[in-house]
Computed example of a mutant assay.
Amino acid sequence: MLERILHIEENEDIRFVVYIALSHLGGLDLLQCRTARDALTAAPGFRPQLLLLDVMNTGVRGESIWRDLRDIAGFGDVPVIFLTACVERDMLDELTTLGALAVIAKPFDPMTLPDDLRQHWRRHRVSGPESGTPLER
């Protein structure tokens, strides 16, 4: 059962909407970080089951954050879902080829976000972490 999600997003408004959607509506344990550095520090103690990453962060792309998190012991198999305002086909294909469970377009529906994440996570658990293409290190 999906319980703990690490969310990395610079935009305070989006963090707030995700907090309401996942914590209050979805009943999930959510740790939110504004920066990659914050996430790298907080992630080991939180032990997330799923990463929810913004694709575009100041100076760092979401794929790079994911790469860095995967290098932490025990995080190699933690799946990722990306959030992005850029929904161009090339970017979606690139992220899924790298092994992302899904790419969710912004704006997203906060009312369905918890169930959407659970559905993607369950699919991952059934098919296994090896079913996706791993992000190259």
Score class of each variant (00 low, 15 high):
Leu117Thr: 10
Glu3Gly: 11
Gln32Cys: 15
Asp38Arg: 00
Met1Tyr: 05
Ile14Val: 11
Ser64Trp: 01
Leu6Arg: 10
Ile20Thr: 14
Gly45Asn: 06
Arg137Thr: 02
Glu9Asp: 11
Met1Gly: 11
Glu88Lys: 05
Asn57Glu: 09
His24Asp: 13
Ala85Phe: 02
Arg125Gln: 13
Ile104Glu: 12
Val78Thr: 07
Arg4Lys: 14
Glu130Lys: 04
Ala105Asp: 07
Asp90Gln: 06
Ser127Gln: 10
His7Glu: 06
Ser64Asn: 03
Ala100Gly: 09
Asn57Gly: 07
Leu95Met: 14
Val55Asp: 06
Leu113Tyr: 05
Leu135Asp: 01
Glu130Arg: 08
Ile72Thr: 03
Asp71Cys: 02
Arg37Lys: 13
Leu30Thr: 05
Ser23Gly: 12
Pro44Lys: 00
Arg15Ala: 05
Thr84Trp: 08
Ser64Glu: 09
Ile5Phe: 06
Arg89Asn: 03
Ala36His: 05
Ala102Arg: 05
Glu63Pro: 01
Asp90Ala: 12
Glu94Cys: 11
Ala43Tyr: 00
Asp29Tyr: 03
Pro110Ala: 06
Val18His: 00
Glu130Gly: 09
Thr58Cys: 05
Phe16Met: 15
Arg118His: 09
Arg137Leu: 01
His124Asp: 15
Thr133Val: 09
Glu94Tyr: 11
Asp116Arg: 04
Val80Pro: 01
Cys33Asp: 09
Pro44His: 00
Glu3Cys: 10
Phe46Gln: 12
Met91Asn: 12
Ala36Leu: 03
Phe46Lys: 09
Arg37Tyr: 08
Val103Thr: 15
Ile81Ala: 03
Gly76Arg: 03
Ser64Arg: 04
Leu117Trp: 05
Asp90Val: 05
Val55Ile: 07
Thr96Asn: 11
Phe46Val: 12
Leu40His: 01
Arg47Cys: 10
Arg61Glu: 15
Asn57Leu: 11
Val17Gln: 04
Gln49Glu: 13
Tyr19Lys: 15
Cys33Gln: 09
Leu31Ile: 13
Pro44Asp: 00
Leu22Trp: 14
Leu6His: 10
Ser131Met: 11
Val60Glu: 15
Gly45His: 04
Asp90Lys: 05
Val103Glu: 09
Gly26Pro: 01
His124Leu: 09
Asp93Cys: 08
Arg123Cys: 10
Leu83Arg: 06
Val55Pro: 06
Arg137Phe: 00
Leu92Arg: 05
Leu95Asn: 13
Phe46Tyr: 14
Val18Tyr: 03
Gly128Val: 05
His120Val: 13
Phe16Ser: 12
Ile81Asn: 02
Ala102Gln: 09
Pro44Cys: 00
